[in-house]
Design a protein around this nucleic acid. Structure first.
Ligand SMILES: [Zn+2]
Ligand SMILES: [Zn+2]
Ligand SMILES: [Zn+2]
Ligand SMILES: [Zn+2]
Lengths: 156, 156
DNA sequence: TCTTGAACCTACAGTCGCTGTAGCTCCCAT
DNA sequence: ATGGGAGCTACAGCGACTGTAGGTTCAAGA
């Protein structure tokens, strides 16, 4: 056994998985990643297991899974002989949620499109956008379903 | 002038607009609603103006506009003779954002659908969901664009 | 008039998944 | 030995609320 297992500092882990260093520490703080070994100088060192685990988390986040769901999925990977029914259920639930959102957003798209297109682009007093927002009666939808909030992220 | 202008306590405002009492107080705290008059017992009382303003905010929120955009839109309603170009721009920007999200979510939908459908529903070790999440090579997308986070809201 | 209970008040913590900052310490190459 | 990049902890902030604790006010019924 002259071969040593690979070990990475936190920055390497970040680079290899495409997460940020702070995010890795955050995942540790909420118990999603186990506490790693430390050097004598108190710096984190990770092995292959942790790298794989973080890559899994990152990939699942890319799919939009919330951390709670990822936590459950990770627990399942520790029991490889168990049925995958629950994993599939989590995935289906997520798919359902994604579809629900698509539906809401498409309804929204239609309403916004109509507002912009109907406006004659004169003064605020005659603005279709403003008047529709002021009065639900002028609105094409009977009812509004709740839509998730939309901070416009760094369009830099 | 024997007729008094209508005045509502906060709960009435909430009921009439479909917002929550706390939300109204929150809007006041961030300066979206002006501070209302108070009774001798320090309770808020609102007039028609405030009701209209809150209804506008609520309706714009139903359309998914972020509060910053709503703030700008409200400022415009105070200058009815000005051009509505900026209002329309805000609306178009929002529409663009909505479409961007729809695109992301549709890509996601396809990937999730494939994962669920390809799984043979055996053990975790053979689970397609788990294996795709473990390995981007098994993934249908070359790259993942960032998707907004999705807490599954009260499915009670 | 008194009493009850709903509605109101303030202040603050929690949600979700990070991101950014301040003010340190550590490690490695020159 | 020194400089600078990487690491460390701890905490505040984002957006848009929601929930709680612990109190006060108000209006209707007995
Ligand atoms: Zn217009
Ligand atoms: Zn409407
Ligand atoms: Zn499966
Ligand atoms: Zn992938």
């Amino acid at each position: 056994m002259t071969h040593t297992a690979p070990h990475y500092p936190i920055g390497d882990l970040a680079k290899r998985t495409g997460t940020k260093v702070q995010t890795i520490r955050y995942y540790e703080s909420i118990g999603l990643l186990p506490e790693p070994a430390r050097t004598s100088g108190n710096q984190r060192i990770y092995g292959q297991d942790q790298l794989d685990r973080l890559a899994f988390i990152k990939h699942a986040r890319d799919f939009g899974f919330p951390l709670d769901a990822i936590r459950e999925l990770l627990e399942m990977t520790d029991r490889p002989a168990a049925s995958c029914a629950e994993a599939d259920a989590i995935c289906r639930r997520h798919l359902t949620e994604v579809r629900r959102r698509i539906g809401r957003l498409q309804a929204l798209e239609g309403e916004l499109k109509r507002m912009v297109e109907t406006c004659s682009h004169g003064t605020v007093a005659d603005c279709r956008v403003i008047s529709v927002l002021s009065d639900h009666e002028k609105c094409c939808a009977e009812e509004h379903e709740p839509v998730e909030t939309m901070p416009y992220k760094a369009t830099a």
